[in-house]
Amino acid sequence: ITIHVNGVTYHFDNPEEAEKFAQKMAKTYQLKMEIHNGEFHME
């Protein structure tokens, strides 16, 4: 699972971890999250 946050790329093997991380980042930084081709993009 690949997550892009403001141009920084994070890779996770565990989908649950990826989702937790994505939600935490979105909440902490008030980010808008989109999913493209199974990759999370946040800005």
Rank of each mutant, 00 (worst) to 15 (best):
I1T: 05
I1V: 07
I1E: 01
I1L: 06
I1W: 12
I1M: 07
I1Q: 04
I1D: 01
I1P: 02
T2F: 13
T2L: 11
T2G: 03
T2I: 11
T2M: 07
T2S: 08
T2N: 10
I3E: 00
I3R: 01
I3K: 01
I3V: 12
I3N: 00
I3Q: 00
I3T: 01
I3D: 01
I3L: 05
H4L: 06
H4Q: 04
H4I: 07
H4Y: 12
H4M: 05
V5I: 09
V5A: 06
V5N: 01
V5T: 02
V5L: 06
V5Q: 01
N6I: 14
N6M: 15
N6K: 13
N6S: 08
G7L: 12
G7A: 06
G7M: 11
G7I: 15
G7S: 08
G7V: 15
G7F: 14
G7D: 05
G7H: 09
V8W: 13
V8T: 09
V8C: 15
V8M: 10
V8R: 13
V8S: 08
V8Y: 12
V8Q: 08
V8F: 12
T9K: 13
T9L: 10
T9Y: 05
T9N: 05
T9G: 09
Y10V: 02
Y10S: 00
Y10M: 02
Y10E: 00
Y10W: 08
Y10P: 00
H11V: 08
H11R: 09
H11I: 08
H11M: 07
H11N: 06
H11P: 01
H11C: 15
F12I: 01
F12D: 00
F12H: 00
F12E: 00
F12N: 00
D13C: 15
D13H: 11
D13W: 11
D13T: 11
D13S: 12
D13N: 09
D13R: 10
D13M: 10
D13K: 08
N14L: 10
N14D: 10
N14W: 08
P15G: 08
P15R: 12
P15Q: 07
P15A: 09
P15L: 12
P15K: 10
E16N: 07
E16V: 10
E16K: 10
E16T: 08
E16M: 10
E16R: 11
E16I: 10
E16Y: 10
E16D: 11
E17G: 03
E17D: 08
E17F: 06
E17I: 09
E17R: 08
A18M: 04
A18W: 05
A18E: 00
A18D: 00
A18P: 00
E19C: 15
E19N: 12
E19F: 14
E19Y: 14
E19K: 12
E19R: 13
E19G: 07
K20N: 07
K20Q: 10
K20G: 04
K20C: 15
K20I: 10
K20F: 08
K20T: 10
K20W: 07
K20S: 10
K20E: 09
K20P: 01
F21E: 00
F21R: 00
F21T: 00
F21I: 01
F21D: 00
F21H: 01
A22T: 04
A22S: 03
A22V: 13
A22G: 01
A22L: 05
A22D: 00
A22N: 01
Q23G: 02
Q23E: 09
Q23C: 15
Q23K: 08
Q23A: 11
Q23R: 12
K24H: 14
K24D: 08
K24C: 15
K24V: 12
K24N: 06
K24W: 15
K24R: 12
K24L: 13
M25L: 09
M25E: 01
M25S: 01
M25K: 00
M25I: 06
M25N: 01
M25H: 01
A26F: 10
A26C: 15
A26R: 09
A26W: 14
A26M: 13
A26E: 09
K27T: 07
K27M: 11
K27A: 12
K27D: 13
K27H: 06
K27Y: 12
K27G: 03
K27W: 13
T28I: 14
T28N: 11
T28W: 15
T28V: 11
T28E: 15
T28D: 15
T28S: 05
T28Y: 15
T28L: 15
T28P: 01
Y29L: 10
Y29M: 06
Y29C: 15
Y29V: 05
Y29W: 04
Q30L: 05
Q30F: 09
Q30W: 09
Q30K: 09
Q30M: 05
Q30G: 13
Q30C: 15
L31N: 07
L31D: 12
L31A: 04
L31E: 12
L31H: 07
K32A: 13
K32H: 13
K32G: 09
M33W: 12
M33S: 02
M33E: 03
M33D: 02
M33K: 00
M33V: 13
E34V: 15
E34K: 10
E34N: 08
E34I: 14
E34T: 14
I35G: 04
I35H: 03
I35M: 06
I35V: 07
I35L: 08
H36W: 11
H36P: 02
H36V: 12
H36Q: 06
H36A: 04
H36T: 06
N37R: 03
N37M: 07
N37Q: 05
N37P: 02
G38E: 04
G38T: 03
G38P: 02
G38L: 06
G38V: 02
G38M: 04
G38I: 05
E39D: 06
E39W: 07
E39P: 04
E39G: 04
F40W: 15
F40H: 04
F40N: 03
F40C: 15
F40A: 04
H41T: 05
H41N: 03
H41I: 08
H41Y: 14
H41L: 06
H41W: 14
M42S: 03
M42F: 11
M42I: 06
M42R: 03
M42A: 05
M42Y: 07
E43Q: 11
E43T: 14
E43I: 15
